[in-house]
Structures are given as structure tokens and as C-alpha cells.
């Protein structure tokens, strides 16, 4: 946690005309940290990424990257970032090598070192044998890799990846996630996605954005805590006696899903899992499944936005 601060976002807002895309967003990223930026579509993820990468100017607030203000000293600030937008900015008519050489030149890598930079980036992104192929002929997964190679070719302290795994097959997704974890060792990485498991698989810290506001900024462990709800789902071979379940200590309500499955709501202070298992074996219901119910991302948003709504009301 004592690594130097790479990015400082201070009270950034961005309006499209009258419509706010992000409102008063502040956060920091440290070196060696993978920050997951989670939100449903249209929450303001991409806008935040665009502001961070200098593609959009914030309407108010400021962004410091590696100590340089993005508006006052854009060149130094932009030299410290590598950015993969939602649609990888690829020139389809160039070969991978030509394209990466161009990116290296754009990022002011001195000529003698460009070849090495290009080869390193290719090796890291699994593009070793694709150097002479035309980008336009590559598959979506490979294009995505070229996009990532482009973002890391100049070894920027901060790598910004906007939905890097969209459109990839499961194997490619795993490879990209491994790559992101690896990048996280010596770069700061900020990654946006609307897929909850992706954040859990790759990130150290998570931020949730909803309707342009940050509603959660926490470590991944804390997120797991948020995700646990006070609900159990249990499946039985024989139809259980709802009344007896309801009578267990801590159980607040029991809802029958169908003949043999029930959803049990309970008081978080008194976890009735053991009691349910015991009751089921004693009664011979044939318990074959019991699990705490995890919140889906949508439910998490509802919970978080509802609770922040409450606190602001309380504060007011």
C-alpha cells in the first residue's frame, strides 16, 4: 500500500451538454495495483477512461498522472499512460510489426530501441508469430492483443484498458486476464468491465460506478463481503415442511421456489446453515444442495445505490 501514487483524480465531472456522464469522481491508483472499474452499460466507465487518457477534457476537476496535470502538461502526463479504448485503435491496412513500430514512434521511443520494444510487447501479448500479418485479417482476439501490445509498448507506468475481454473466447479471456495480472506487478492498471467475476479474478481493488457516481471504492475482499447476501438456497429430494424451516432460529422468511427448492432469508447475525442441514437430515428430506446466494451485479448496484441514497438523505 506504500507504493507511490500514480494517478490522482480529483472531483472530476464531465457533462455532455446538460447531461452529466460522470459526477464528482475522485480516486487514486498506486503503482503495482490493478484497479477494476465496474459498472453497468452507460454508467460512465468509458467516459472516465477517456478523461484519464486525455481523449476528453473534464468539465471540472483535475487529473494528475505521475505528478503531471493532464491539462497543463499533457505531453508528460500522456507519456505515462498506455490506453486501450473500447474499440482497439488499429489501422487495418498495416501489418502488426508496422503498426507497433508506428506506436513506438508516436510514444517517442528512440529509434534504436523500437525493435526491442516491439518484440517485448509482442512476446508479452502472445503475438510472436503474427508480426508480418495484416491487422485487418486477424481474428478479434488477436486484434485485441495487438491493442494491448500497443498500450504497453512504451512500458507506461499506467495502463488503461477499457473492456479488454469483450468479444473474446473463454481461453483468450483467461490469457488476457493472466496478462493483466502480470502487468499489475510493475505497472498500475485500470481496467473497466461490466463482468463481476472478471474483477474478482484480476483486480486488487474495485470501484463501482453507477449513473456517473462512484458508489463503492474498496478492496476485493470487501467486495466479497458486499456480495454475500442473507439468503440461502436449498434443494431437497422430498418436499420440505416450510413451517419447520421457518421455526429455526435466525430464519426470517422461507420462500418456496418450486416443489423441492426453497429460498431461506435469515438474520445475518444468526447464520442458520448448520441448523438447516441438521433438520434436513433428521427429517429425511434428502438435502442435495445448499449454498449462500451471491448477489448479481445488478442486485449489488441496487443495494449500493439504495444504501448511498439513504446515507445522503441521512446526511442532509
Amino acid at each position: 500500500m506504500n507504493d507511490p501514487v500514480l494517478v490522482e483524480v480529483q472531483n472530476v465531472s464531465r457533462y455532455y451538454g446538460e447531461r452529466p456522464a460522470i459526477r464528482d469522481v475522485s480516486f487514486t491508483i498506486r503503482r503495482g495495483e490493478v484497479l477494476g472499474f465496474l459498472g453497468p452499460n452507460g454508467a460512465g466507465k468509458t467516459t472516465t477512461m477517456q478523461v484519464l487518457s486525455g481523449n476528453l477534457a473534464p468539465s471540472s476537476g483535475r487529473v494528475l498522472i505521475d505528478g503531471h496535470d493532464l491539462l497543463d502538461d499533457p505531453r508528460a502526463a500522456k507519456a505515462a499512460i498506455g490506453y486501450l479504448p473500447e474499440n482497439p485503435p488499429l489501422y487495418r491496412e498495416l501489418t502488426v510489426d508496422e503498426y507497433l513500430d508506428y506506436c513506438a514512434a508516436l510514444n517517442r521511443i528512440p529509434k534504436p530501441q523500437r525493435r526491442e520494444a516491439r518484440e517485448t510487447a509482442k512476446a508479452r501479448c502472445g503475438l510472436k508469430d503474427a508480426g508480418r500479418r495484416l491487422i485487418g485479417n486477424l481474428s478479434k482476439g488477436f486484434q485485441q492483443r495487438v491493442g494491448i501490445a500497443q498500450a504497453i509498448i512504451h512500458l507506461p507506468p499506467l495502463v488503461i484498458l477499457d473492456e479488454p475481454t469483450v468479444g473474446l473466447d473463454p481461453i483468450q479471456i483467461r490469457e488476457i486476464r493472466n496478462l493483466i495480472r502480470e502487468l499489475g506487478r510493475d505497472h498500475g492498471v485500470i481496467l473497466s468491465t461490466h463482468i463481476l467475476p472478471e474483477v474478482q479474478a484480476t483486480c486488487d481493488r474495485v470501484q463501482i460506478i453507477h449513473k456517473g457516481r462512484l458508489v463503492l471504492n474498496d478492496s476485493i475482499e470487501a467486495l466479497a463481503h458486499h456480495l454475500k447476501s442473507a439468503t440461502l438456497v436449498a434443494g431437497f429430494r422430498q418436499a420440505p415442511d416450510i413451517a419447520r424451516l421457518q421455526a429455526l432460529p435466525g430464519v426470517t422468511a422461507v420462500q418456496a421456489e418450486d416443489e423441492s427448492r426453497v429460498r431461506i432469508f435469515f438474520d445475518p447475525a444468526l447464520d442458520p446453515t448448520d441448523a438447516v442441514v441438521r433438520l434436513a437430515t433428521d427429517a429425511g428430506w434428502g438435502l442435495h444442495e445448499i449454498a449462500p446466494e451471491k448477489l448479481s451485479l445488478e442486485e449489488l448496484f441496487v443495494e449500493l445505490t439504495a444504501s448511498t441514497g439513504n446515507t445522503t438523505e441521512a446526511a442532509a
Partner: peptide, 14 residues
């Protein structure tokens, strides 16, 4: 249109 402008805009180029 091809959204490649982002490459130039996020590079350290004025």
C-alpha cells in the same frame, strides 16, 4: 469513424 483517433490523442503528441 474507425475510432483510431484515440491512438493519436492518448499519445504524447500535441
Amino acid at each position: 469513424r474507425n475510432k483510431t483517433l484515440a491512438l493519436l490523442l492518448s499519445a504524447p503528441v500535441s
